[in-house]
Simulated scan of single mutants.
Amino acid sequence: MKLSDFVVREAISVDLESTTKPEVVREVARGLLTAGLLSEEDFESVIKAILSREELGSTGIGQGVAVPHTRHPSAQRLLGAVALSRKGVEFAALDGEPVYVFFLLISPPNQPGDHLRALENITRHLKDENFVNLLRQSKTPAQVWDLILEAEQGMMLGR
C-alpha cells in the first residue's frame, strides 16, 4: 500500500490557519469534504470520531508530526489528507513540541487491516527526517504530492 493509494490530492493544504487541535482536525477534514469524499451530513460525526480518538491519546507522534485518524461508517475507502501549518499547533504531541505536519486518515470500520497498514505506511515515511523537512518546505499542494510520489519511488536523498 502506497501513500498515493489513499492520500487525496485535492485534500492537501500547505497553509493551515487553525491554531487548536479541534480547529485543525476540522480544517484538514474539510479538504476531504471539499473534494467530495465526505458528505456534509457525515462531516460532524467524522470530526467527533477523530476528536474522540484523540481523547484516548494524542496522535502527535513527535518531531512536529501528527496522524489524527479514525474508522467511520461513512468512509467507502481509505481517505487521507495532508496539511501543513507554518506556525505550528499545540497538539499534545509526545515530545511536547508544536506540530507542523498533519496526515489525517479515515477508513471504513470493516477494513481494520487496511487502516493499520495505512498508519504504518504514514509512520514509516514520517520517521524519515529528510522527507519531513522537505514536506515542511513545500509551498504548494503540487509540491507535497510530488514529494509523496518521489518518496514512494525511493528517490529521497540518502536512500
Rank of each mutant, 00 (worst) to 15 (best):
L94H: 01
L94K: 01
D95P: 05
D95M: 12
E97P: 00
E97H: 06
E97Y: 02
P98G: 15
V99T: 09
V101Y: 10
V101N: 03
F102D: 10
F103D: 12
F103Y: 12
F103H: 12
F103K: 04
F103E: 12
F103S: 10
L104R: 06
L104N: 08
L104Y: 09
L105C: 03
L105P: 01
S107I: 06
P108Y: 13
N110L: 01
Q111N: 06
Q111D: 14
P112F: 13
P112A: 10
P112S: 13
G113N: 07
D114H: 13
D114C: 05
D114W: 14
D114L: 13
H115Q: 03
H115W: 02
L116K: 06
L116A: 15
A118M: 07
A118L: 04
L119R: 01
E120M: 06
E120W: 00
E120I: 06
N121K: 07
N121P: 00
T123I: 07
R124A: 09
R124N: 09
H125M: 05
L126I: 04
L126Q: 02
L126S: 01
K127F: 04
K127T: 03
D128M: 12
E129A: 12
N130Y: 10
F131K: 05
V132S: 04
V132C: 09
V132G: 05
N133I: 12
N133A: 14
N133L: 15
N133T: 15
L134Y: 14
L134E: 14
L135I: 05
L135H: 14
L135N: 11
L135D: 11
L135M: 13
S138G: 07
S138N: 09
K139P: 04
K139Y: 11
T140C: 07
P141Y: 00
P141K: 02
P141Q: 02
A142M: 05
A142G: 10
A142S: 10
A142C: 04
A142L: 14
A142D: 13
Q143S: 08
Q143T: 05
V144G: 11
W145M: 07
W145Q: 05
W145L: 13
W145F: 02
D146R: 15
D146L: 09
L147H: 07
I148N: 01
L149D: 01
L149H: 14
E150G: 04
E150K: 12
A151D: 11
A151C: 15
A151T: 12
E152L: 07
E152T: 10
Q153P: 07
M155K: 15
M155F: 13
M155A: 14
M156K: 03
